[in-house]
Design a protein around this nucleic acid. Structure first.
Lengths: 124, 124, 124, 124
DNA sequence: GTGGTCTAGACCACC
DNA sequence: GTGGTCTAGACCACA
């Protein structure tokens, strides 16, 4: 077995948060996102840390910068975010899911019922 | 957003490993499992850390100790392991999976194809 | 006319230096490059600044990292560096050159002679 | 490697702009050039900065002042500008160009094609 | 020893 | 106000 430090790092968590904001459309293409200082204050971390996260998202071309004005989601930002997230989904989440299904002896049918329960609320 | 320390204590990772050994049947009910020192040597950690993990598994009644003889999987061990893993599966993995499916716009059909690809190997 | 701050930033200068080392083959593919602290001491800047530069080169996939061991030039590093440098050459140096040739009334023949002078040393 | 402050003083950029105006003939010998205040307003800088630039051009004998009338390009102004620009071209641009050609492995023939592309527009 | 992250605080340019 | 860079120093994990 592999023992590894799984700590994610604050700036990485902030970046993931940003990616999800873009994926969910809360931060839409072309729109301005919270300023470095603002988000830093909200989250309670050093502005440099948020800057690191934004820098990372900028290198992924999900956001871009306009000097003196702020950070903005790129037009192709959502697309880039989907590509990125989909890849980690295929490489990490899917194998882990397969393993759990096998260990817990959950088949396709049961998984489907767990994911999309025919709940009472849906019948209203 | 929440910033959280995601570092998984090493002992916890070892415990998860043990649970998976039980689930997969490698460590069967009533059987003796590797000694603390043995597993510590294999994994490359301090014996105290493995002891901590075994303590944890013992508190979950998945393994038990027999003075002077070692640690053994309890008769009801696999059952307990399944309950535990199933719970964390429902509470953690499933919600995360739902969220990703929604964000990545993957529907039930596509998920099924990703999980059970109609590959050549399956046709053997 | 445009007035702009042309200051290049230390980390960017260090990154450019690194790119030239890779282009010239001083830092060859697969080889280890100076450690962050080492280069920082040589250049006389804060290690964080060198880290920033290396981080930038890493995002360009010119170098890669091996935890606890150091930074290494990627196998495709030189190629990536050439692509990058060639682009800025075409977009920045070439237009400036054209402008100067026009203003100074230097034609293709004269430029060729300036670039590749039939010097005495070459005749030895 | 050397770390250097590459920031080009604004007055220097304005002076370069003036030199190019003279070289291109927009500001011809003997003619009056824009007043300090006028150019300052156009460019959006402090009049003192433009004054600094004009002072610099005067010391190069490219322009001269006529009390109460304004600044004028000297008769030998274009010549002086050519000398100056040619010198910096030989001392700065040419070496940098040689270095890039070598690093990017661009030979004389390829450079010629990049500088004078046989485009459709040239055939008109 | 190596990379890597985070904080605190300073200073700059752009708007 | 905004982004952006740099320093100083601390602490961690990996080898």
């Amino acid at each position: 077995m592999d023992i590894q430090e799984t700590s994610q790092g604050i700036y990485r968590q902030i970046a993931e948060f940003g990616i999800e904001q873009v994926l969910s459309g809360v931060w839409a293409g072309g729109e301005r996102i919270p300023s470095v200082r603002q988000l830093a204050a909200e989250v309670g971390v050093n502005p440099n840390t948020v800057m690191h996260a934004y820098d990372y998202l900028k290198s992924l071309e999900i956001i871009e910068t306009q000097r003196g004005k702020g950070f903005f989601v790129t037009e192709a930002g959502r697309n880039a975010a989907v590509q990125l997230r989909r890849q980690t989904f295929l490489e990490e989440e899917l194998p882990r899911l397969r393993k759990n299904l096998e260990l817990l002896e959950i088949d396709a049918k049961e998984l489907h019922e767990l994911l999309f329960p025919p709940s009472i609320t849906n019948q209203l």
